[in-house]
Structures are given as structure tokens and as C-alpha cells.
């Protein structure tokens, strides 16, 4: 039942918070934007789609389902603020997905999607999260690899 589920979900929505211990601090790896894409993997890292799936679902890391739906079973609360992720692997190539995860606002300035690999131009960041990106380069690459598998 709706109410019961909601009560159980109790834990706070964006509460992504507290997590991201992985985000390794200070310096961002350099990358090059071409049109709407970052063609080269960050730091030349290769992504693992299984880890990427975990990050997308993990409320303390990607927490992407707060806004998106994804074709995964057993996830009762799927978001509706962003487009469904199903089929994104056929709509966008890896470089295009990468830029959207790094900083969606480069494509749509008024977007509500957080910038996951950016530290400049943010204000009033909680001291616990200051000066490091929301996700690290490996996590970005893992999610790119996972999203590329969502072809239907």
C-alpha cells in the first residue's frame, strides 16, 4: 500500500548525502568537450557496467532514480523529473553520456540534474562535500558503461 511503502521509505529522498566516500577529493582530471560530448574516458579509465548499475541505484552515490526511471526490477520508487533512462544507450553515444554526467548544465543551462563531476561555480556547499565532485572519475566511467547497455 502506498502509505505503508512511503513510511518505510522514510529515509530522506535526496539523501544521497553522507555517501560518496569514494569521491577522492581535490583535483578533477582534465577533459575535452567536443560539441555535446566528452569523447575520451576520464583519465583513460575503463568502466564496468555492473558497478555502474550499482552506483546509479545507490542512494548514497548516484541516486539517479530519484529523478529517472530505469529498466531494473524491484525498484518501487522511480523518478519522473528526468527522461526514462531506458533506451539511452541507443539515443546517445558514450561521449555524449559522459558530458551529461559530468555537467548536464553545459547542454541545458537551467537543468535540475546535478553536475556530478564539477566543483567550480557551486555555492554554499556543505563543508563535508566541499572541493570534491559528487562522484569520482571511475564512478562516472562505470555509469557511462552501464548506461550504454540500456539500448531498449
Amino acid at each position: 500500500m502506498r502509505l505503508g511503502g512511503k513510511l518505510l521509505s522514510g529515509a530522506f529522498w535526496l539523501l544521497a548525502a553522507l555517501g560518496s566516500q569514494n569521491a577522492s577529493g581535490a583535483e578533477l582530471l582534465p577533459y575535452t568537450v567536443r560539441n555535446d560530448s566528452v569523447p575520451a574516458p576520464l583519465g583513460g579509465l575503463s568502466g564496468d557496467p555492473r558497478r555502474g548499475r550499482d552506483i546509479v541505484l545507490d542512494r548514497r552515490r548516484g541516486n539517479c532514480l530519484i529523478c529517472h526511471s530505469a529498466p531494473v526490477a524491484g525498484e518501487p520508487f522511480q523518478g519522473e523529473l528526468g527522461p526514462p533512462l531506458a533506451g539511452v544507450g541507443s539515443r546517445l553515444d558514450a561521449g555524449q553520456i559522459r558530458l551529461r554526467l559530468i555537467d548536464q548544465s553545459r547542454i541545458s543551462p537551467r537543468t535540475i540534474m546535478p553536475p556530478y563531476y564539477r566543483i567550480e561555480g557551486l555555492r554554499d556547499v556543505d563543508p563535508a562535500y566541499r572541493d570534491r565532485p559528487a562522484l569520482d572519475a571511475q564512478e562516472i566511467e562505470d555509469m557511462v558503461a552501464y548506461l550504454r547497455t540500456l539500448t531498449d
Binding site: W13, P76, F77, Q78, G79, L81, P114
Partner: peptide, 18 residues
């Protein structure tokens, strides 16, 4: 990087994970 308005004006009435 979200403002109050982006949730409470632009997306009021929509669901945010439950």
C-alpha cells in the same frame, strides 16, 4: 546545485522517489 524554486516552483506536484 539546486535552488528551492527548482523543486518547489518548477516541479511541485511531481514525485521525487515516493
Amino acid at each position: 546545485n539546486l535552488s528551492c524554486a527548482q523543486c518547489h516552483d518548477d516541479n511541485a506536484g511531481r514525485s521525487l522517489r515516493g
